[in-house]
Nucleic acid binder design. Structure first.
Lengths: 186, 186
DNA sequence: ATTACTATTAGGACCTAGTCATAATAGTGG
DNA sequence: CCACTATTATGACTAGGTCCTAATAGTAAT
């Protein structure tokens, strides 16, 4: 009974993350408490109201700085982007990313995050991966947050070399060198 | 004389398309008319209210995030599997696999097909990709069918090397060498 | 049991960005 | 001037909240 509040608040955070388009009223019903309690919880947890949450999700897609490349084409969430220079994205490893047997992330998700970030950082309509050398340096488990950092390390007429390093906390979990084709020269 | 009704409505459509997060009040100011006029205009043009517009953008974003990568065990359909020897899978490239701009398949899908096939061919509970060298030899377009063939080319105590070649018809579109870890020895 | 404290619930005033319905007024064409 | 459209005004109502105050319930320590 003592931890009831805590438990509820933890579940609340989870639930709102999963289905952010949920009203206080619906939440109150699900938890069997009053709307006021839900609102107190949100206040304590600094979770904004429904409309703000919707706006945030919508804004992700409408961020003017990111409009060079449609954001939905990047795996993970882009948190920083300087075209032709560097980019950073975050991918939270969830159940759907891992092998059910051992809860280790499937390689192709880490690859997808890195590869799509490499595409995003290139300021070009047509950016294609020609080849890549990649390394999975440490297994990533469910619940971990992978931060991928892409940086352009070489660039000539129509080829760009991009290095992507992905970390969980300070630990390197993936690194890759991507050789990309561009349509136009710089 | 300001804008005529028709003109204003045309401009209105444009403006809302450009900056969908604009209130009727702001629109009224921009056009120098009353809020009611703007609302009549929206009614005639069947443009939903601000909150609905935001919700639409948000929903689009949300759906696209959810379909980032398919969740199935193996990406593509396995048509042949001999454990510790070879495996073949087919992946039909659809709209959701390609860049909207040029209809070319995103590299990570080809990688995912190859990598998950490499995992599948290994007769082991725990098979992880350690590193890989990959080559995208030809862009794959929407509508094409990619056939991936994985074959074990070397195997020792707890490492397996797998070569995957992917074809569209007879054309090689992707090749990769995957260095995989296994938990148990053979 | 009394006090202290947290947790929960309740209520009201106010807010934004609308909806819908009704009515009055302005501007223009014939 | 009349008819008609366009515009504006007004009021009642809505969802999904915020913010503030106040009452009550439950538990813990003295």
């Amino acid at each position: 009974m003592k931890y009831k509040k805590k438990d509820r608040q933890n579940k609340l955070v989870e639930m709102i993350e999963e289905t952010p388009f949920i009203t206080d009223e619906e939440l109150a019903k699900k938890f069997g408490v009053s709307i006021q309690t839900i609102r107190l919880d949100r206040l304590e947890l600094s979770i904004p109201e429904l409309r703000e949450r919707i706006k945030n999700v919508a804004n992700k897609n409408w961020n003017e700085e990111l409009r060079a490349l449609p954001v939905e084409e990047v795996i993970g969430e882009v948190v920083n982007l300087e075209l032709d220079n560097l980019a950073i994205s975050i991918l939270d490893i969830k159940e759907e990313h891992v092998f059910s047997r051992n809860k280790i992330a499937r390689g192709h998700h880490l690859f997808a995050q890195a590869n799509s970030l490499a595409v995003a950082v290139i300021n070009d309509e047509l950016a294609l991966t020609a080849n890549a050398e990649i390394n999975f340096t440490r297994p990533v488990k469910v619940g971990e947050r992978v931060v991928a950092k892409a940086s352009v390390i070489d660039q000539d007429k129509n080829r760009t070399i991009i290095e992507v390093k992905s970390y969980v906390q300070d630990e390197l979990v993936f690194e890759g060198k991507f050789y990309m084709f561009r349509s136009a020269e710089k």
